[in-house]
Design a protein around this nucleic acid. Structure first.
Lengths: 352, 352
DNA sequence: CTGTTAGCGCCTTCAT
DNA sequence: ATGAAGGCGCTAACAG
């Protein structure tokens, strides 16, 4: 199979030595004009560049990183690209990674632990400079993460209890607290938390935060309807369950674990005559879903700083790559913030 | 720098020769047990695997693809991860790529032509086995695509007019046609198309399709409100413009270029007293946005087969990589299909 | 400033 | 079935 040319159109990729030959210089010079332009005469630089252009040469990065022992790409392993929160993270990470002269490649775990492990392995085999891991919300993270032994690794949206990795997370309890306190500040006292399953760390912590806020107010109570997920249909289901439980509803404020849940709840309430949001029940969601802000009743929400998380995590990773990172692993905690809108403020809220 | 160990915690990555030494075999044997297990005794295979496990060895893929001249990863360059259509494509592509024993890495162009070019360059330098390109909707595609000279390239959601690349697209005209004909079948005659800018190929083609459907019906007309984008706010704006133009509205059917547009329109109409959707105006959106199906008035829509597009494109790419592809480039055209829901059918539509 | 050279870690004949 | 050796394309150190 040696002398048989590859099938079809393309001739083989030109190599540096081809470029060197055409430009009439040595191969090392080509390498220099690419990596250390200051070490090369303007004239020869031009000749080399011309040859590169003429040949359509593209440097083989596999060879480069093999020889140099360093890569210029970082990998991002993401739990679910279908969730815009992770897309925000990717956007943020991409920005700072690029700022450091590197490139970001993304692998989607698609809510599948096996894929997540595989993705980590892929990046490790590729000898990327480092990897950012926004993992599934399961207790197995440390295990799969341990697969990547020597590659710098920073966690996003997950805290390494054993301090094995640095990471950046958002204070979910604080978010739940903010949401509940907002409703309490509006004078509501009979609150309900909607979300689930509580085995999800984020949901459980938001619930805890809400509990804390309620505990601060003497005559306030917090009820719970646990759901099987955070989509609109789960919200609808929860609302129907609530209505079935006691009608008229003995609740005047709701904290939902997601905007979609909130929307579902609102939709069911809308169909009930003589029932008003937020007049009868004030509702706060979570996530600042783009959709939620523009729905019929713009949903008050707790916004998570996804892009900033991505940026910060990438920053931490770059430090580890550069070897300038602190010895101890650190977990940065970012604060979510409340965005009150019509579903809690009512007419007191003005668009834009 | 030879005997100085790398900084900090990690000792250097073990290499194949380390494994060979530990297992008491030659380096070639290690390679064989990894790549051609059938060429190795069960006993030595076990010894080698044990050594690999003990050392935590991970094969250096840069070296591997350099030596073997083949890569096992394919790249996907995507116009906008914020658009769930592209996420669907990624999901489909990932599935078939994996089925062929390869891995998919994603790079997000984030609606930026420069990033798109850069992403293509990154994958080309990495010498991936091939790349899938779901490009921005601009006339410059052919140019930036030409950057990738020798890497197999298949287009997704874009047609190579010059037949330089294979690809898979969806029949946008057909989609527009289906939407409009559905409204016409409902007895509506004064239609309106909402979407824009028309410089976007997809929007223009959907509009053309709608025109064709209307042309088939003697007394039907099709009006146009061109927007600056396809989000909810553009839909609201368009609806207000329409109301301002003539009140009561002289329109009884709307084809929107996206579900979000449709939702925006519906929201504005909802605020008008004595105005009913679909009673007064039947509305069809486009994209089968997950939200749209669960919003207040579930939006009738045209669904695009994103995952299937990804699968098919990946299939085409794998053929090119394997060299089993037909000589001439082919563009596969997939058909969208109509999902009638409440925004056009009204009470005649039953959920689920 | 330019040319020469020795590997980077692995795959792949070719002997054994 | 196993071992030895050359080379993939490039970088980095050194010599000129």
């Amino acid at each position: 199979m040696s002398d048989a040319t590859r099938k079809g159109t393309g001739r083989a990729q030109p190599s540096m030595s081809d470029v060197a030959k055409l430009a009439g210089v040595a191969i090392g010079t080509v390498s220099n004009t690419l990596n250390s332009p200051e070490k090369v005469t303007e004239a020869t630089r031009r000749r080399v560049m011309a040859a590169i252009a003429e040949l359509g040469f593209v440097r083989n990065d596999a060879a480069r990183s093999l020889a140099a022992g360093t890569s210029t790409t970082v990998g991002l392993v993401v739990a679910d690209l279908g969730n815009s929160f992770f897309v925000d993270i990717a956007r943020g990470a991409e920005a700072t990674v690029r700022q450091h002269g590197m490139n970001l490649l993304i692998a989607n775990s698609d809510v599948d632990l096996a894929k997540q492990s595989n993705n980590l392995a892929v990046f490790e085999q590729a000898r990327v400079a480092g990897v950012l891991l926004a993992p599934l919300d399961t207790p197995f993270v440390e295990v799969s993460a341990r697969l990547t032994s020597n590659t710098p690794l920073v966690l996003v949206n997950y805290e390494s209890r054993r301090k094995l990795y640095s990471g950046v997370v958002v204070d979910e309890r604080r978010g739940g607290f903010l949401a509940a306190r907002h409703v309490l500040d509006l004078g509501r006292r009979r609150l309900l938390f909607v979300g689930g399953p509580l085995s999800l760390r984020a949901v459980a912590e938001r619930y805890e935060g809400a509990q804390r806020a309620v505990a601060d107010v003497a005559d306030a109570t917090l009820d719970l309807v646990e759901t099987h997920g955070q989509n609109i249909r789960h919200g609808k289901q929860a609302a129907r369950e609530l209505v079935a439980r006691s009608n008229p509803i003995a609740i005047d404020g709701i904290v939902a674990a997601s905007d979609l849940l909130a929307i579902g709840v609102i939709q069911v309430f809308d169909e009930l005559a003589d029932f008003d949001v937020p007049g009868d029940v004030a509702i706060v969601g979570y996530d600042n879903n783009h959709f939620a802000s523009e729905s019929n009743v713009p949903v008050s929400t707790v916004s998570q700083p996804g892009e900033e998380m991505g940026r910060l995590a990438a920053e931490l990773l770059c430090e580890e790559i550069a070897g300038t990172a602190a010895r101890d692993k650190q977990t940065v905690v970012l604060q979510p913030h409340l965005l009150p809108r019509r579903s809690s403020l009512g007419d007191a809220w003005r668009r834009d």
